[in-house]
Design a protein around this nucleic acid. Structure first.
Lengths: 141, 141
DNA sequence: TATTGTTATACTCTATAACTATA
DNA sequence: TATAGTTATAGAGTATAACAATA
C-alpha cells in the first residue's frame, strides 16, 4: 500500500486558477485585452461605480498595478474616471455605454471558455462549485 | 431593480487561485522556494516518480520553464533526475529522502495557510469544494 | 520525421520604494 | 500625520523560437 497524499485545496485552486487565466488570456487576446481588464469590467458590472481603490481590492491587484489597467480601459473609452467631489483624492471609476456593450458581448465568449474548462462537471455540480467559490470570494476583502 | 451580473466561475477560480498562490509564495519565501517548487514536490508525492514531461503537465507549467524549477530542487537534493534506460531522451524525476522530509514538514504550514484562505467555509463545504476541484483537475490533461 | 529536454530571450505580471495631492 | 493615486523600477513568472540528442 503506497502513500498517496492528496493535493491541498489551496494548490488545486492555484493550479486551476492559472489554467482558467491562461484560457481567458488567449480568448481576450483578439480584443487586445488582458484578464485584468475584463476583471475590472465584470467587477464594475457587478457592483456599479466604485473608487479605484475598491477596484483594486475587487480584482485582487495592487493599487499601483491597477493604474495602468484602468488607464488602458479609459483610453479605449470603456470606463471613465471622475474625481469624487466629496474627497478629491479619489477617482470614481464607471462603465461607459461602450464598456457595457463590450461586457455584454464578451460574456458569450467567457461562457464558451468556461464550458470547456468545466466540461468535466455536470451542470448541478458546476452550480455548486460556483456557489462555494462565490461565497469564498466574498469573505476575502 | 439594478442589473447585477454575477462573476463567472472561471473568473472566481482565477481570482481565488491568485490569492492562494500569493499566500503560498509568502509562506514558501522562508524556505527560499517558489510555489512551483512545492507543486513539484506535492505532485511527486502524489503520483510517484515520473518523467519530466509529465511533471510539466501535472503542475501546469511549460516544459521549458519546468527545467529551472527541477534544476533548483535537484541542486537542493530534494529530487533526483535519472535518464530512463528505455528511452534515453527522458529524465525520470524522483523525490529523495530529503524531499519527502521537507514535503512532510511543509504540509503543516500548507494546511495553516489553507485554514486562513478557506476560513469562510465550514468543514463539510471545504471537503465538497476539494472534491469538485480535485475531479476538475483530473480532467485537465 | 517526431519527441524530450534544453537554452536564450522577449514579454507580462507582481512586488518594493518613493513621490504628489488632498485630507 | 494619514490616505488615494501615481511613477519608476526590479524581480518573478510566462510565452516565442530554435537547438541537440534520441527515437
Amino acid at each position: 500500500m503506497e502513500e498517496r497524499p492528496d493535493a491541498s485545496t489551496g494548490y488545486l485552486l492555484a493550479r486551476l486558477g492559472a489554467e482558467s487565466r491562461r484560457r481567458w488570456a488567449r480568448m481576450l487576446a483578439e480584443h487586445q485585452l488582458a484578464p485584468h481588464h475584463l476583471a475590472v469590467l465584470m467587477s464594475l458590472g457587478h457592483v456599479g461605480p466604485v473608487h479605484q481603490q475598491r477596484v483594486s481590492a475587487l480584482i485582487g491587484v495592487d493599487p499601483r498595478n491597477t493604474v495602468a489597467v484602468v488607464d488602458l480601459l479609459q483610453r479605449r473609452g470603456l470606463v471613465e474616471r471622475a474625481v469624487d467631489p466629496g474627497d478629491r483624492r479619489r477617482n470614481t471609476v464607471t462603465l461607459t455605454a461602450d464598456g457595457v456593450d463590450l461586457l455584454t458581448r464578451l460574456r458569450e465568449q467567457v461562457d464558451a471558455v468556461e464550458d470547456v474548462l468545466l466540461g468535466g462537471l455536470p451542470g448541478h455540480e458546476r452550480e455548486l462549485l460556483h456557489g462555494l467559490l462565490s461565497r469564498l470570494a466574498d469573505t476575502l476583502p
